[in-house]
Simulated assay, not measured.
Amino acid sequence: MSQKNLIVAFGGVSPEHEVSVLTAIQAISALESSSYQIIPLYITKSGRWLTGEHLLELSNYKDLPTLERKTEDCAFVKDENGKTFLKEQNVSGLFSKPKNFPVYAVLCAFHGSEGENGAFQGVCEMMNIPYTGSSVLGSSLGMDKVKAKLVAAANGIPVTKSVNFYESDWVEEQDGIINVVEDFDYPLIVKPVSLGSSIGVAIANDRTELTEAVETAFRYDAHLLIEEAVNPLMEINCSVIGTPDDCKPSVCERPLGKTETLSFEDKYQSGEGAEKGMASADREIPAQISDKLTTKIQDMSVKIFSVLGASGLARLDFLINSNTEEVYFNEINTIPGSFSFYLWEKTDLNFTQLMEELIQIAVKQHREKNGRVRSYDTNLLSEKALKGLKGLKGTK
Rank of each mutant, 00 (worst) to 15 (best):
S306A: 07
I241L: 08
A279V: 09
T216G: 05
E260Y: 01
F218K: 01
K303H: 13
P255W: 13
Y268H: 13
P232V: 03
A279S: 11
L225A: 02
A213D: 03
A222S: 13
E212Y: 06
S290L: 13
C252D: 06
E215F: 00
C247E: 10
L293G: 01
T243R: 06
K276F: 12
V230E: 01
K248E: 07
A217T: 14
N231G: 11
D245R: 15
S306N: 07
A217S: 12
Y220S: 05
Q298Y: 00
T216K: 10
E260G: 03
M300C: 08
V214T: 11
R283E: 12
E265I: 00
D299H: 15
E227F: 15
C247I: 09
E228N: 07
M300A: 10
E235D: 02
R283T: 09
I199Y: 02
L262S: 06
Q298L: 02
Y268L: 10
E265H: 04
K267V: 10
R219V: 11
G277F: 05
M278Q: 15
M278V: 14
E260H: 05
N205S: 08
I297S: 00
T295P: 08
D299F: 11
G242K: 02
I236F: 04
E212L: 04
A202I: 09
A222G: 15
